[in-house]
C-alpha cells in the first residue's frame, strides 16, 4: 500500500507541475483556435434559422483574385527565401564547421548578429540603407553619378532580402550544430578509401545531417510563411503576404470571418510542413547510433 500511495503522489506531483502551462495552452490557444476553425465552416446565425455547415467562406476566398494572388505570393516568397537561405547558410556553416582559422570566429559573430536585432529595427535600417535616397542610392549618385538604382523597398525583393537576413542566424546555428555531429574520423575514413571532397559531401555528410536539415527547412518555412513585421514594413501594397493581408482584412475591412478563414488556410498549409517536422523529430533512428 505504501508504495502505491507513493507512486500516486509522484504521479500527482508530475501532473501538478505541468498543469499551469497546459491549462494556459488549452484555454488561451487551443480552445479559441478550435472555435475559430469551427466558425469558418458554420453559416451565420440568423434569427429563426439554425446554423449549418458550409464551405462558402473557403469558396469565396478562392473565388477572390486578390486573395488567391496573396496566397500564391506568400508561398512564392516562402519558397524563394528558404532556397536562398540554404544557398547562403550552407557554405557558411561548412566553413564554420571545418575551418580552424581565427577568421572563423569573426564570421560566426557576424552570422549570429541578426539574432539580436528585432525585426522592426532591421526593417527601418534597411529602409534607410536600401530605400530611395538611402545610403546605397546616395553613394551611387555621388561617387559614380549613377541614378539608375532601383530600390527593393516596397517590392517583393525587399521582403525576401530582409527575411533572409533575419533567418541566417537560426539556420547557421542548426546547420553548424548538425555538421559538428559528423565526426572528423567519419569524413577522414571516406577520404581514406578514395572519396573526393564532393563525394564525401554528398554521400557521407549530407545523409548524416538529414535531420537538422529537415528541421531547419520546416521551421524556416513556417516562420517565413507567417511573418508579419518585415512584409508589413518593406513589402508592396499588392500582392501582400498572408500575415499582412489578414491584419488588413481584420482591422481595415472589419471582416472578422474573412480574416479567420485566411488564418485557418494559412494554418493548414503550415501544419503540412509541421507534420513533416514532427515526423522528422520523432522518427526512430533505427539505423543510427
Amino acid at each position: 500500500m505504501a508504495t502505491r500511495s507513493r507512486y500516486l503522489n509522484t504521479l500527482f506531483a508530475g501532473y501538478a507541475l505541468i498543469a499551469p502551462p497546459l491549462i494556459i495552452l488549452v484555454l488561451l490557444i487551443f480552445y479559441p483556435a478550435g472555435q475559430a476553425i469551427v466558425r469558418t465552416v458554420m453559416t451565420d446565425q440568423e434569427v429563426g434559422i439554425a446554423a449549418g455547415l458550409t464551405l462558402d467562406r473557403y469558396f469565396n476566398f478562392f473565388a477572390d483574385p486578390i486573395a488567391r494572388s496573396n496566397l500564391w505570393f506568400t508561398i512564392w516568397v516562402t519558397v524563394v527565401t528558404t532556397a536562398l537561405l540554404f544557398l547562403v547558410c550552407f557554405p557558411l556553416s561548412l566553413y564554420l564547421r571545418f575551418s580552424s582559422s581565427r577568421i572563423a570566429g569573426i564570421v560566426q559573430v557576424l552570422a549570429l548578429f541578426p539574432l539580436f536585432v528585432p525585426g522592426v529595427i532591421l526593417a527601418f535600417a534597411l529602409i534607410r540603407y536600401l530605400g530611395p535616397r538611402g545610403t546605397v542610392d546616395t553613394f551611387l549618385r555621388i561617387v559614380f553619378n549613377y541614378t539608375g538604382f532601383v530600390t527593393p523597398y516596397l517590392k517583393p525583393s525587399g521582403i525576401i532580402f530582409a527575411l533572409v537576413w533575419d533567418h541566417i542566424p537560426f539556420t547557421v546555428l542548426v546547420l553548424t550544430a548538425g555538421l559538428r555531429q559528423v565526426e572528423d574520423s567519419v569524413i577522414e575514413a571516406a577520404r581514406d578509401v578514395g572519396a573526393s571532397g564532393l563525394r564525401v559531401f554528398f554521400q557521407i555528410v549530407l545523409p548524416l545531417i538529414q535531420r537538422p536539415l529537415l528541421i531547419v527547412f520546416c521551421l524556416n518555412m513556417i516562420g517565413i510563411f507567417g511573418s508579419f513585421t518585415i512584409p508589413y514594413l518593406l513589402g508592396p501594397a499588392a500582392p501582400q503576404m498572408m500575415g499582412v493581408y489578414m491584419q488588413q482584412t481584420f482591422t481595415d475591412y472589419l471582416d472578422r470571418s474573412g480574416a479567420e478563414t485566411q488564418a485557418v488556410l494559412s494554418f493548414l498549409i503550415c501544419s503540412v510542413i509541421g507534420a513533416l517536422y514532427v515526423r522528422t523529430v520523432t522518427r526512430r533512428r533505427g539505423e543510427r547510433a
Binding site: 567519419v186 575514413a189 577520404r191 581514406d192 578509401v193 578514395g194 573526393s196 548524416l208 539505423e287 543510427r288
Partner: peptide, 20 residues
C-alpha cells in the same frame, strides 16, 4: 598526394563506420 589518392588504408580509433 591527397589522402584519397594514397595507396594506404587506415583503421581509426572510433566512430569509423558510416552510420547511415
Amino acid at each position: 598526394m591527397p589522402p584519397n589518392k594514397r595507396p594506404t588504408a587506415m583503421v581509426f580509433q572510433k566512430y569509423t563506420l558510416w552510420p547511415h
